[in-house]
Design a protein around this nucleic acid. Sequence first.
DNA 1: AAGTGGCGCAACCGCCTGATT
DNA 2: AAATCAGGCGGTTGCGCCACT
Length: 246
Amino acid sequence: MVRAPCCDKANVKRGPWSPEEDATLVNYINKHGTGGNWIALPRKAGLKRCGKSCRLRWLNYLRPDIKHGGFTEEEDHVICTLFFTIGSRWSVIASRLPGRTDNDVKNYWNTKLKKKLMKQLVSLKTVPESNFDYQVCAQNSASIDPETKNREYAANSMGFPKQNFNPGIPTSNSSLLCPPSLTEVSDFSHVPSSTPEVSSHSDSCSVVMKSEYSGSANGSSEQDQVLLDFDFDSMLNDFGFQDQSS
DNA sequence: AAGTGGCGCAACCGCCTGATT
DNA sequence: AAATCAGGCGGTTGCGCCACT
């Protein structure tokens, strides 16, 4: 079965939004709300746009509570931790960052944060016996996926060789501490804490994610643990980094 | 000053999911 | 129960800007 398109693509405008279109959309939503029907909204508002396009424009740019500008270190920590825990579920990650959109978080990860993290991993490779000085700890999502699927995907997305992704037992105790400011803001109802442990060897690295979370009615807690083992050379090669140790 | 390559971001595409008929 | 639809989501693309040569 072929799905009908959500709008008549021949008769809708595409590409960047003009200030006039923005104003029309904002005025309409301020006056009438979205009405729970994005498909009908552009016609009612007098816009020659696809409903999906209107929705995206409003949610990602025009909403009054959108936070524009650079991400803070705290936000970096949250994104990194959640990415390693649940994978590329940007909407879930964004929901933990007030004022940020999934598109924003996704763009930030893909263009900046991933590279920043990789550079830190590079520095780990060049100082093999030191503890990895990268700290990621934050509140995690209540919708944490107990299966390893998303972590495997996360590892794969980061360029970690899939075949080396093995949930298992930590190999060291170089535990990384959570920044106090992050623990203080952990006020979600089922907030687990996550403390990655990273150990390094001459040519490989292990990242252990331990997620302890209490969400059951009797207050008991469960611990979920995963070990990401990856090979430096293939990882650095994937990301186009020079091997500085050779 | 012109050309070029990289980066960042807004927007689009297509699939999935859940609600409704 | 099946079909249909709209909303939501993640992946990808395209374009403008900027730094560098």
